[in-house]
Design a protein around this nucleic acid. Sequence first.
DNA 1: ATTTATAATTTGTCATACAACTTTTAATTG
DNA 2: CAATTAAAAGTTGTATGACAAATTATAAAT
Lengths: 228, 228
Amino acid sequence: MNGEFIPVSQTIANRISDMIFLDKKYMPGSKLPNEYDLSSELGVSRASLREAIKILAAKGVLVIKRGSGTFVCESLDENDDIYGMKYLEDKKKLVKHWFEFRLILEPKSARLAAENADEKQIEEICFMSERIIELIKNGKPFTKEDQQFHALIAKATKNDVIKLTMPSIESAVSDAIQTSSKTGHSEKSNENALLYHPSIARFIKYRDGDGAEMAMRFHILRGLKDLE
Amino acid sequence: MNGEFIPVSQTIANRISDMIFLDKKYMPGSKLPNEYDLSSELGVSRASLREAIKILAAKGVLVIKRGSGTFVCESLDENDDIYGMKYLEDKKKLVKHWFEFRLILEPKSARLAAENADEKQIEEICFMSERIIELIKNGKPFTKEDQQFHALIAKATKNDVIKLTMPSIESAVSDAIQTSSKTGHSEKSNENALLYHPSIARFIKYRDGDGAEMAMRFHILRGLKDLE
DNA sequence: ATTTATAATTTGTCATACAACTTTTAATTG
DNA sequence: CAATTAAAAGTTGTATGACAAATTATAAAT
């Protein structure tokens, strides 16, 4: 029943991340204590600590040098990985940046989708649009479906980079999105979806690149405006 | 001396990735053998296998369910992570998609940089532009510096999402870029950099958003054209 | 047939030992 | 004294074994 189980390895990975990004106990390039010391300091076995370190190394936060030590990635402020986004101070600003980013990318994606989508994908996009409308009418949450709607459009561009990038960044800012969405602007969000989703879907269906780009642009502009 | 040492955990992580993305031995949602069987099948200890699994779980490829098993992430084709980009068949197509993506994002980034960069960042951008020119004149490689040039512009937008996204995606497609750059179009690449980098830097320096956007657009269009 | 209890399966964690590599220190040598 | 070489100390890599904790499958009881 417990879906909230978190392994020690993950807990330790989070604690080390906090020490780096929040406490700034270990700066980029600096060396962590060796595995024996750090594991005893954190009160876990060396095996569990090693798994935690592997997690952070996979995310580009740590760099492991055999025989030498484990270090905080030097280019961590430059920055090599979107992992640190979770630790950015100003969540509100991050959400705004997220919308600005989408304002650049998604209108063009909508155009590409209108030009390149196959019939099946168009069907899926239209279906998801209608499903979201149903959910809103019944007063149910539609966050997940909204993301899927935009993901389907990204997929329909037939551009692998766009397709694979969008969800990745979305998950990186999901914390901030969740935080800011608690400050409740659900009615506005409803209106925005009801107003623009069908238009976007229709423009894509009728292969109108200009229309799709414009509709998506207004859709995201509206979302950006509703942040305040 | 050996900088090419690869831990077993990483080797095994790669082999499992290959089994998933190349051999399609394990499809999304399907279950991996238990850790005892899989470790003996792969000829490594359970501890090393576990570290490999943690790496892939961190990248969103695997999902671990305690007491139940380890599974290939269901939404792996949808897709949750850009990790799978390395395994896309057509490297040439991926590089083209990468340029198309940049063609959308970077001209706007250049505009934002022109509008928002502080003096220090402008100085860095101009410096990097001149440094690349020096390298080209001396016949030296400048791939790394070229990436830094674009990364500096991304950073100067003052948009955290743009700043953190660019390098992340770049590293994901680095394999394909490296492969395709071996087919040699270095002279064209030289010309392109020599022609446009200084213009872009100058437009940003003089706060000309329109100019910066246009110059960057032509710069990437030229790169896209040179792919063929 | 349904519920309950048991067993089997599987991941989680810890402890220990040794191997392999890197860095530091000390000794040797010219 | 300086430079080279050898030893030692420090650190990550790997393997093995044992038990805990959660889930799933099986069997028993009602």
